[in-house]
Design a protein around this nucleic acid. Structure first.
Length: 418
RNA sequence: GGGGGAAUGUCCCGAGUGGCAAAGGGGGCGGACUGUAAAUCCGCUGGCGUCAGCCUUCGUAGGUUCGAGUCCUACUUCCCCCA
């Protein structure tokens, strides 16, 4: 797989930027990608109204595909979402209604539009929902048409299945069938759009390979699979979890400022890797930036944060986020771009308990937590540490019309009377 | 169908002789040190509180008891073995 002689721009870019974990038929795929337009797809879940950073590597890979002259298909798992994700052990998860799923898909599409060009052209991206075919099959029909191509013997040999059985963990029949459904997705996309490549995370390898083989067997046509490495930070943390929970991509679920902060707080050892994966910066620039040492690497982190935020939220939002961050962290100043929380003026003048205000403003989950935070020295009012959570704040605490509340170094809220 | 085992702090794993707001981890949050990094060390980690206390928690529902996560009964879900 570390074949250095890729001819196609597509595979060369993917390899150089670190997207490739495994590929099914590298030479053949390379040939196809260098001689014509390759149509490829990645499947996404529709269980939430937004994707989060964990999916970003996949989204970026579709972007690279389009950038190098090929056609991306975004497959929304509307049909499979109806069943619920079986790899999640929590079986009590409520099933989503048709309307919720459609709303989620619409919301998610707004994010894709930032990274991909959609349209009717030969290399324009399209989005399809697997519900449009999965829901049309009857059970018998499904078995007869597709079931005959899968042997239990082979399915049992796949790692995803094998390890489950070896660990004596239960695997339901439903789960077992996911492999088939995903393979059928690939086949349908091949028939409808001439899609020949499925990409995904390394955990999808088994499912992808099955689809590849199904197409090769049924259609007697070439098909390929490619997976990305599992992403974690250099210190072993799962990618995408930070102060404030999941890093959602939709702006209404995660502000551009927070998104910028997420990238700004990248570990030193990850800066280069992330720039290659999550920005369009040229490799030369990245090599220079990631070579910075000591505190200088912070400059590289800002470049990373700006580039990543610009892709998702636009240049203006990225610049505003940077300005707010510089003001808050480097100059200790208050900036209007920091998150704010509004309090009725009358309430403030009557006096508000600090712990209650901090909890309401979202700095702590409860008053008790806010109190503990204060006791531990983590709560500040206008940059002064306040250890008494029961202290009452009123209008006299306003500085320039706001009260600046901070929990730790990175969570800041401006309380505004209205 | 028969037999055995399990369900614990609503993030996860996990101990728990009838006195338990419940050991210990992980994770998370905060502090120190730094560079808004990593590593390390320290603290916190059910809710409300006028800090005395009150309230709510151990699958569900009952029961025994002054007192139940702990004992009894039924039920639910899951796992294993036999058929």
């Amino acid at each position: 797989m570390s074949d250095p002689a890729f001819k196609s721009d597509f595979l060369r870019v993917l390899r150089d930027r670190g997207y490739i974990h495994q590929v099914t038929h590298p030479a053949e795929l390379d040939e196809a990608a260098s001689s014509g337009i390759v149509t490829a797809y990645i499947g996404f879940d529709a269980t939430a109204p937004s994707l989060h950073v964990g999916s970003l590597i996949q989204i970026m890979m579709l972007r690279r595909l389009q950038q190098s002259g090929h056609k991306p298909i975004v497959l929304m798992g509307g049909g499979t979402t109806k069943i619920g994700d079986p790899t999640d052990k929590d079986q009590s998860r409520p099933l989503l209604t048709e309307a919720q799923i459609q709303a989620n898909i619409a919301s998610i599409k707004t994010v894709f539009a930032k990274f991909l060009r959609f349209g009717d052209g030969p290399t324009d991206a399209i989005m399809v929902d697997n519900d449009s075919w999965l829901s049309t099959y009857g059970y018998v029909e499904f078995l007869r048409e597709f079931g005959v191509h899968f042997t239990i013997n082979r399915m049992l040999a796949f790692d995803s299945v094998k390890t489950r059985l070896e660990r004596e963990q239960p695997m339901t029949f439903l789960e077992f069938n996911y492999m088939l459904m995903q393979s059928v997705d690939f086949l349908e996309l091949e028939r409808r759009f001439g899609c020949v490549l499925q990409m995904g995370g390394s955990d999808q390898w088994g499912n992808i390979v099955n689809g590849v083989e199904l197409i090769r067997r049924v259609e007697q046509k070439p098909a390929f699979g490619l997976t990305t490495p599992l992403l974690s930070t250099a210190s072993g943390q799962k990618m995408g979890k930070t102060v404030g929970g999941a890093v959602w991509l939709n702006a209404d679920m995660r502000s551009p400022y927070d998104y910028w902060q997420f990238w700004r707080n990248t570990e030193d050892a990850d800066v280069g890797r992330f720039m290659r994966l999550f920005t369009d910066l040229p490799l030369d620039d990245i090599a220079r930036l990631e070579a910075l040492e000591g505190a200088q690497i912070n400059e590289a982190k800002k470049v990373l944060a700006n580039a990543a935020t610009t892709l998702l939220h636009g240049e203006d939002a990225a610049r505003a986020a940077e300005a707010a961050a510089v003001a808050a962290f480097e100059q200790g100043q208050v900036s209007g771009d920091l998150p704010s929380f509004e309090v009725p003026r009358g309430v403030l003048e009557a006096g508000v308990v600090l712990a209650a205000l901090a909890a309401d403003a979202g700095l702590a989950a409860s008053r008790g937590e806010a109190r503990r935070l204060a006791q531990g020295g983590g709560l500040r009012v206008n940059d002064t540490v306040e250890t008494d959570g029961n202290r009452t704040l009123n209008a006299s605490d306003l500085v320039d019309g706001v009260i600046k509340l901070s929990a730790g170094k990175k969570k800041i809220v401006l309380v505004r009377p209205v």
